[in-house]
């Protein structure tokens, strides 16, 4: 009973947050609503006893990814009026894509695949159940190759993204910390011995 109540509260928050993400005008506020949505979905994962996934969602998406999102969005000076201009023109296409997505989603996660007959409700585990251990023991044994391949693909994507954006321009100035640190007094200061001036 109380679990259902918690589920509905967080589900409502989540749907509300997700709706605000795409309707609110200000991009910073949209990003903050996305954070709220992540939080609510983390809470729902908690209800599924998937505490590792829930906490990792907060750690990775809320703690790092969205911070960088905000970092970029806050620096942009977006003209919201310009963004709204093509709304009516693109509306039919948007509705078409939305319907297509819904049909595909229902086709995959619809009742014929995920109904209670096909998939029984997961049973409750005891207090000593550790979601982290369960995930780890499967991830590093049964799925070790897909897991490693996914990691390598991500690494390739990171390196590709960095090399694509890293341009060496002749005007860019760099500091060499090595040479900065290894500076000695004799390189910078010249002691000059001279007689003091005499009063005439």
């Amino acid at each position: 009973m109380i679990e259902k109540l918690i589920f509905y509260i967080f589900a409502i928050i989540m749907v509300f947050g997700a709706t605000m993400v795409i309707t609110v005008r200000n991009p910073v506020r949209a990003a903050l609503f996305l954070v709220l949505t992540f939080f609510a979905s983390a809470a729902i994962w908690m209800l599924l006893e998937a505490e590792f996934l829930a906490i990792t969602l907060v750690l990775v998406y809320v703690g790092a990814v969205m911070v960088l999102f905000l970092f970029v969005v806050m620096m942009l000076d977006i003209n919201t009026a310009l963004l709204k201009e093509g709304f009516i023109r693109y509306l039919p296409v948007g509705i078409g894509v939305a319907i297509l997505l819904v049909v595909m989603l229902v086709g995959v996660v619809g009742p014929e695949n995920f109904s209670l007959d096909e998939m029984a409700a997961p049973e409750r585990h005891g207090a000593d159940y550790s979601n982290t251990r369960e995930l780890g023991s499967v991830l590093y044994t049964v799925y070790v190759y897909p897991f490693e391949i996914a990691a390598v693909i991500l690494l390739v994507a990171i390196i590709a993204a960095i090399t694509l954006t890293l341009r060496k321009r002749p005007t860019t100035k760099y500091q060499n910390p090595d040479s900065q640190v290894s500076v000695k007094r004799d390189d910078r200061v010249r002691m000059v011995k001279m007689k003091s001036e005499e009063k005439k």
Binding site: V35, E51, F52, I55, L59, V62, G63, V67, M74
Partner: peptide, 25 residues
Amino acid sequence: DINAGLLYVLAITSVGVYGVIIAGW
């Protein structure tokens, strides 16, 4: 006394940066 205690600490402390970012903006 939860199983994923350290993970929880890491996640919760990483949320603290929002106070700073939102205050600044």
